[in-house]
């Protein structure tokens, strides 16, 4: 019976690892149950780091699980005496220093990825001068919808030709895109799983997110900070378009919106 318990504990790392591997390969019935394909130039480092940590923790998971099962395997119960050992400084130093080394490495290794995604807003060169890429869309979150404001033909926000679309935002492919994100009521969070972009939106703060989508398609935006009863339905679509398609869409939508606002003025 004792060995049954030992095997039960051994099953944890074995089945645990199998399930993860199964999900990674997306075999039935776990198809689509792993990270979605990354389509953001800045997101690759996040996936790389995720996989690196998965490997490191996977090895430790299997190793410690096997040791745990082994420690219980020889037990026969009552017939023999346990070793009278109070500790071993050398061993303890070894198993403190090795994880410490791994963690220091991870801490330093990830700094660039963090800076690229959260600190260093992309720059562009205009008239020979470097400047931060200005936000092309202002995202306003409210219970329980996303409004997307475009600056209109003059390229400036807070002017009369601004227009708003809701539920769907369009961006061009292969260009660094910056969104300014705002909230008009409570906390929300701007999350696009396929872009590996997430940022809580704090009312009263000026915040930006950026990305460079490298594949055309429709990607879902989800709110990931509890914002009330309708939190679960606060979604929208981010459509990444080829540059020429985007230009056409922008022109048509601008014309349409301006026509509507003019009809109001008349």
């Amino acid at each position: 019976m004792n060995r049954v318990w030992s095997l039960l504990f051994l099953l944890v790392p074995i089945l645990g690892t199998l399930l993860i591997v199964w999900a990674i390969f997306g075999a039935w019935p776990l198809a689509g149950l792993w990270l979605p394909e990354n389509v953001n130039e800045y997101g690759g480092v996040i996936d790389h780091l995720f996989n690196l940590i998965l490997w490191i923790t996977g090895v430790i998971f299997i190793g410690t699980g096997a040791i745990l099962a082994l420690t219980m395997w020889p037990a026969k119960g009552g017939s023999r005496r346990a070793a009278y050992v109070h500790g071993n400084h050398t061993l303890e130093i070894i198993w403190a220093v090795i994880p410490a080394g791994i963690l220091v490495f991870l801490s330093i290794y990830q700094l660039n990825a963090w800076a690229e995604n959260k600190m260093d807003r992309p720059v562009e060169v205009v008239d020979g001068e470097e400047r931060l890429v200005p936000p092309s869309v202002r995202v306003v979150a409210r219970q329980f919808d996303w409004d997307f404001f475009y600056p209109g033909p003059d390229g400036k926000f807070d002017t009369v030709d601004d227009f708003m679309v809701t539920g769907e935002v369009h961006v061009p492919k292969n260009q660094p895109v910056v969104f300014q994100i705002e909230s008009s009521d409570v906390l929300h969070s701007f999350f696009v799983p396929s872009l590996r972009v997430k940022q809580d939106i704090v009312p009263g703060m000026k915040q930006f997110v950026w990305f460079e989508a490298n594949k055309a398609g429709r990607y879902e935006i989800a709110c990931t900070e509890l914002c009330g009863w309708g939190h679960y339905k606060m979604g929208a679509v981010l459509e990444v378009q080829e540059e020429e398609d985007y230009a056409v869409w922008l022109q048509e939508t601008t014309a349409k919106c301006l026509a509507i606002s003019q009809s109001f003025e008349e």
């Binding site: 780091l49 940590i53 923790t57 430790i60 990830q110 995604n117």
Partner: peptide, 26 residues
């Protein structure tokens, strides 16, 4: 012990700030 190992190891994912961008609040 067996469960704490899993909980401890999964903590490393979210301690890594760039990975946390993706898994935070999931």
């Amino acid at each position: 012990l067996s469960m704490f190992i899993i909980g401890g190891l999964s903590g490393i994912f979210m301690a890594a700030t760039p990975v946390d961008i993706y898994i935070h609040d999931t």
